[in-house]
Design a binder for these strands. Structure first.
Lengths: 345, 345
DNA sequence: TCCTAGCGTGAAAGCGCATTCAGAAAGCGC
DNA sequence: GCGCTTTCTGAATGCGCTTTCACGCTAGGA
C-alpha cells in the first residue's frame, strides 16, 4: 500500500506548532501537557485524520495490542462458539484478534504460529484438539518455546500434555462417562460409536470416558462397533451409513461430536430409521443448533463461549515463570428427546 | 512482552559473520548473495530461532501481510460461512487475517476500523449488512476515506450504497422475489414475514423483493403481517410466538434469515403446529444446518464461502483510482419439505 | 597489460514513534 | 529579589529492518 504517504505524528506536530515529543505526549496522555497545547494537537490530529502507526508504536516499545487465535475451522459451530467468547473477552481488554483457521493441517498450524511470532502478538491461543504425534509436538514446541522465552503468552483449549502452557480443558473423559451412565440407566446395552480421527486427543478422551462409563454398568464396547470418520457433518453421515450397511447392532449410537451427530441423524432418516423409536442418538458439545433438531439431541453441554473467555483471560493475565495453570471445565449431560429406553427387542 | 530481548537480525548477522545488509538479503532472497554466505546466514537464523519482527519490516517498507475482517458475529453460521471463504483465500495469498466481531454495535465497528488502520492492514473487509443511518454512514466514511487515500483497499459484502468501495452483493431482492414466486406457485396467498431490524439494508432488500414477487401474483403483504425482531434464533422464536399469539392468519411464513427460521420452527413446534402440514416456513441464506432440520427448510441458497473468497479477491487485486467494482452473486431457491401447497381451509 | 562493466558486499540512512535527557520556564521560600 | 525546586518542552536517540549508495572485487574487451 502507501501510495500517498500516511499522515504522521510529525505532520500533526507541525500543524499544531509543537514538537514531535509534545504531540506524542498529548495524544497518549502519558505526561502532563499544557492544556492549550494539547488542544492544538488534538485538533490538528483530528483535522488531518491522523492514525498512529501501530508498527512504529510497537517498535518504539509501546504495548502490543494483538493476540493470535488458531483454530481448526471457524465455520464449525464448536469453534465459532469458542471464538465468540474469545472475541468478547478481547474486546473488553481492548485487544485486536488475529484469527486463523488451519483446516486441520498441522503444517499450517506451525506456519501460523510463526507468523504470529513475527507479529509479536502478545499472546497466542491454540483452540482445538491436539494431534497425538511426536514429530508434530516437537515442531510445535520449537515454535512455542522461543516465543515464550521472548515473553509471549500461550494458552490452549484442550489437549497438549507435553506443552508447558496454560490451558482450559473441557472434561471430555468425565463428560463422556456421565453420558454413558445416563444411557445405560435408560436401559441401553448395545452401543455403537461414531468417532473422529483417533489421532486427536479429544477423540481419545471421549472414547475412553465413554468406555469407562459403560464398564460401570458392565457393558463392553466392541472395537467393531466403533467407526472412525472425519470430524464433520459429512463424516458423521458416512460413518452412520457404514454402520447401517453393516447391519446396525445397537440400540444407541454415540457420536463424539454434535456436528457428526447431525450427519448421523440425516443418514438415519434417509435410511428410514426414526430417532429415538428405532435407535437412540447422542452427541457431545451442545452446539446451539442441536436443540432445534428433530428430535432435539441428547448431548454433553460444554460452555463454549465461556471456554473462549477463560482461555483469553489466562492469556492476558500474566503468568511468567510460574507453573502452567489448568482450568477444567466440566460438561453437563443434557437429556433431550433423541434418546430413550430401547424398545424391547 | 519482551522480557528477554528478542533475537534480532543483527544477532544473526554477527553469528554468521556477515553484515546486517547481507543477512537481510540472504533471508529475503531479494538480491543474489554468495551461496556460502547465504548458507551461513540461514544456519545462524535457524540455530538462534530467529523470527523477523514484522513491525520493523512493515516500518521499513516491507509489504504488510495482514488484512482485517469486520463482521457482526463470527458465531452466526452466515458469517462463519463467509469467514471460512475469506480465510481460505487469505491462506492462499499468504495473508494473515485479523477478524473482529462487532456484535452489531456501529460504534465498535468504527473503533475496529480505526485499529486496523493503525495496523496498516493492507485491506479491510466489511462483512454484513450496513445500517441505513446517515450519521453512521458519515462516521464510517470519515474512517474509510483517509485509509483509502493512504492506499488501503476496502471491500464489503452487501450493503453500502454511499461508500465508494468494491463490493460483493448477494442478490437479496431478486432472491426474495424468486422465493415469493415459488411460494405463490405452490398456492399460498396469505403470508407473514419475520423480519430483522428494518435499519439493515439486507432486511429492506429482502422485504422489498419478497413483496415484488408476491405482487406478480396479485398478492399483497399487509404491514400488520410483518413482525420485526432481532437477527437471531431467539429473535425468530419471539417473532413467531408473537404472530401465533395474535392468531396467525397465514399459510406460509417467510423468515428473512435461516437463523430466524430455526427459532420460528421451534416456536411452531412448541405451539403444537407442524410444518408444513399446518403452516409452511421458508428462510434465506441456506446455512449448512437447515437441510438437516425436520423438516428440511425451503430457503434461498447463497454461496457463502464463495462470497468470502470473492470479497477477498477484490481486496487483494489492486484497483487504485479505478471506479469501484460490484460483484453480484445470485441466490438460488431451494425447495425442501418445509413448504408445500396449503391444505384447503 | 590496462580500463571498463558488472556483480556482491558493507556502511548508513530512514521508516514513525516513545522516551530519555537536558534545558527553559515558572513557582516557591528565604 | 535571589537561588532553589518543580513542570513542562524540545532535541536527540534507538527500536529492527529494508534499501539506497558507494566501493572493492572479478571478468572481459581492447
Amino acid at each position: 500500500m502507501d501510495d500517498r504517504p500516511h499522515v504522521t505524528l510529525e505532520d500533526v506536530a507541525r500543524e499544531a506548532q509543537v514538537s514531535l515529543a509534545t504531540a506524542s505526549r498529548a495524544l497518549n496522555g502519558t505526561t502532563k501537557v499544557r492544556s492549550d497545547l494539547r488542544e492544538r494537537v488534538l485538533a490538528a490530529a483530528n483535522q488531518l485524520a491522523y492514525t498512529p502507526n501501530a508498527h512504529a508504536q510497537a517498535l518504539a516499545g509501546g504495548a502490543h495490542r494483538t493476540v493470535g487465535v488458531i483454530c481448526h475451522d471457524v465455520s464449525d459451530p464448536y469453534f465459532a462458539g469458542i471464538s465468540r467468547g474469545v472475541m468478547r473477552a478481547a474486546d473488553e481488554a481492548g485487544l485486536l484478534v488475529m484469527l486463523a483457521s488451519t483446516f486441520r493441517d498441522p503444517q499450517k498450524e506451525i506456519a501460523y504460529i510463526s507468523m504470529l511470532r513475527a507479529q509479536r502478538a502478545s499472546a497466542i491461543l491454540l483452540v482445538g484438539s491436539g494431534f497425538e504425534d511426536r514429530e508434530w509436538e516437537r515442531a510445535l514446541a520449537a515454535e512455542i518455546e522461543p516465543y515464550q522465552r521472548g515473553g509471549g503468552q500461550v494458552a490452549v483449549v484442550s489437549r497438549h500434555r507435553t506443552l508447558r502452557v496454560d490451558s482450559v480443558q473441557p472434561e471430555n473423559r468425565e463428560g463422556a462417562a456421565q453420558l454413558a451412565r445416563t444411557l445405560t440407566a435408560q436401559g441401553h446395552r448395545r452401543f455403537a460409536v461414531l468417532a473422529g480421527p483417533r489421532a486427536l486427543t479429544t477423540v481419545v478422551d471421549r472414547l475412553r470416558g465413554f468406555r469407562e462409563g459403560l464398564a460401570e454398568a458392565g457393558v463392553e464396547l466392541a472395537e467393531s462397533h466403533i467407526v472412525e470418520a472425519s470430524f464433520t457433518r459429512d463424516g458423521g453421515h458416512a460413518a452412520m451409513s457404514e454402520l447401517l450397511a453393516r447391519g446396525l447392532d445397537a440400540t444407541c449410537v454415540f457420536a463424539v461430536t454434535d456436528v457428526m451427530a447431525m450427519g448421523a441423524l440425516a443418514a438415519l432418516r434417509e435410511a428410514g430409521k426414526s430417532v429415538p423409536e428405532d435407535v437412540s442418538l447422542a452427541g457431545f458439545d451442545d452446539i446451539p443448533v442441536v436443540r432445534d433438531l428433530a428430535p432435539p439431541l441428547t448431548t454433553v453441554a460444554l460452555p463454549l463461549e465461556e471456554l473462549g473467555e477463560k482461555v483469553m483471560e489466562l492469556a492476558v493475565r500474566d503468568n511468567r515463570g510460574k507453573r502452567s495453570r489448568i482450568l477444567r471445565m466440566p460438561g453437563t449431560v443434557v437429556v433431550r428427546e433423541s434418546t430413550r429406553a430401547p424398545t424391547a427387542p
